[in-house]
């Protein structure tokens, strides 16, 4: 599959440490050689707990390879901020999508699926399907 463009993944959490750790986890589980662009956007710009529109916009721009960007979030203001940015129209790369998925399991599914060269719809579907993974 020559010259294939990979879908980028943005992980938005109230905590910078959570976003960075989940990114590390998802890339680690995707295996060596997987070159999926993944960027965490955690916490506020001053390092506190919360959501930063600026960090989200910067993260999305940094992972955009032209194949679309999948954004996964934890809860509350993270979800609302991404939705508000998408409604704005020009704050996020074209073809950016908020994916309805559990944060950790969805991030792993999204990165593994993106590493195969799958398109944005397939990456989003795989992340959402992580809701179906029961633990008892």
């Amino acid at each position: 599959m020559p010259d294939e463009k990979l879908v980028g993944i943005v992980l938005v959490s109230h905590s910078a440490a959570v976003a960075a750790s989940v990114a590390e986890l998802a890339k680690g589980l995707a295996g060596a050689g997987a070159d999926v662009p993944v960027a965490p956007a955690g916490g506020t710009e001053d390092g506190g707990l919360g959501t930063s529109a600026e960090l989200i916009s910067a993260a999305a721009a940094s992972v955009d390879r032209g194949a679309g960007v999948a954004v996964l979030t934890d809860l509350g203001s993270a979800v609302l901020t991404v939705k508000a940015l998408l409604a704005e129209g020009d704050e996020l790369p074209r073809n950016t999508r908020l994916v309805d998925a559990p944060f950790v399991e969805g991030a792993v599914a999204a990165v593994v699926t993106a590493s195969t060269g799958a398109d944005l719809a397939a990456v989003a579907a795989a992340a959402s399907e992580a809701y179906a993974y029961r633990k008892e």
Binding site: G50, S52, A53, G76, S77, T81, K83, A84, L85
Partner: peptide, 21 residues
């Protein structure tokens, strides 16, 4: 509205930002 979305850091940012915008 745009400024609120950028600077508030909690859920009230996108909510009030969307209201004004």
């Amino acid at each position: 509205g745009r400024q609120l979305i950028s600077t508030v850091g909690g859920a009230s940012g996108p909510l009030y930002g969307t209201l004004l915008r």
